[in-house]
Amino acid sequence: MRAYTFTQPRAVREAVTQAGTDTAFLAGGTTLVDLMKLDVMTPARVVDINRLPLRGIKLDRDGLHIGALERMSDVAADRNVRRDYPMIAQALQLSASAQLRNMASIGGNLLQRTRCGYFRDVSTPCNKREPGTGCAALTGINRTHAILGTSDACVATHPSDLAVALVALGTHVHLVSGRGTRTVPLDGFYALPGSTPDVENVLRPGELITGITVPRSMWAANSVYLKIRDRQSYEFALTSAAVAIEWRGRTIRSARIAAGGVGTKPWRLPAVERALTGRPATPDVFESAVRTAADGARPLPHNGFKPALLRRTLVRALTVLAESR
């Protein structure tokens, strides 16, 4: 691992003052320490933020507020989260392993780096890791890669389950830097790779996530996160569906839907949401509503199964949710 300067500030202001270009914030360390060992991330400065007061899981009339340093396992076990935002608890519970969930923070999860094997292997070209070197995944083994939001420069899948559920629920991210605080929608927080896949989000150098707010809604309590993967546990998604529905009797009044495992960022599906609005919860309606889910997809040589698997994942999530009503 390369040398870095290391600090452990106790105040947020102190932390963002110490941070700048070439700085990595250390929270749970499950991504950062791994990628520093692999020489994929080589920050000149590491700022340990674990002593900052960025904790708390609070429910109020605006919604659910989660401090950036809350750990995945604690949020998954929170009674309010499980009752009012079940898809968040499920997405967390289906992520990683128990040990990693005990370590990894919510802020860090949103910044989790892709599991693309070429990104993680410094001996291969990767435009995300080293801009301009090319993309080894395009002609390499790309079974787990993205089909939506890809570009000729990058096809890396966004790895987070949590972010998929949070994007479906219209979550906002709170940020702080030396220039002050700002709040951005999580959907807009993430950037598509385009010709600059090294730019993954709107964070400025040294800017820090302090927490998130998931708005109160009529649909979050009726929600499910379904994850399809090669192993039953401890594996990233091939496809996943975060589905929340507001019911009026047997009719879908409105739906919020996002997909994981398929996009270069958590993939909201507004067309599917619209196709379900005002319709009865029947198998025919589900089948027809998800027809457009993979529109615009660019399957790669090894992941041609993903568009169909995505549609089936969505239908099953909708069915599970309708049956549990």
Partner: peptide
């Protein structure tokens, strides 16, 4: 490499000793 830190099971290979 699983150990307990403050009673919670974690991976010691991804835990920096300074923390």
């Amino acid at each position: 490499c699983t150990v307990h830190v403050d009673g919670r099971r974690v991976l010691s290979c991804l835990t920096l000793a300074v923390t």
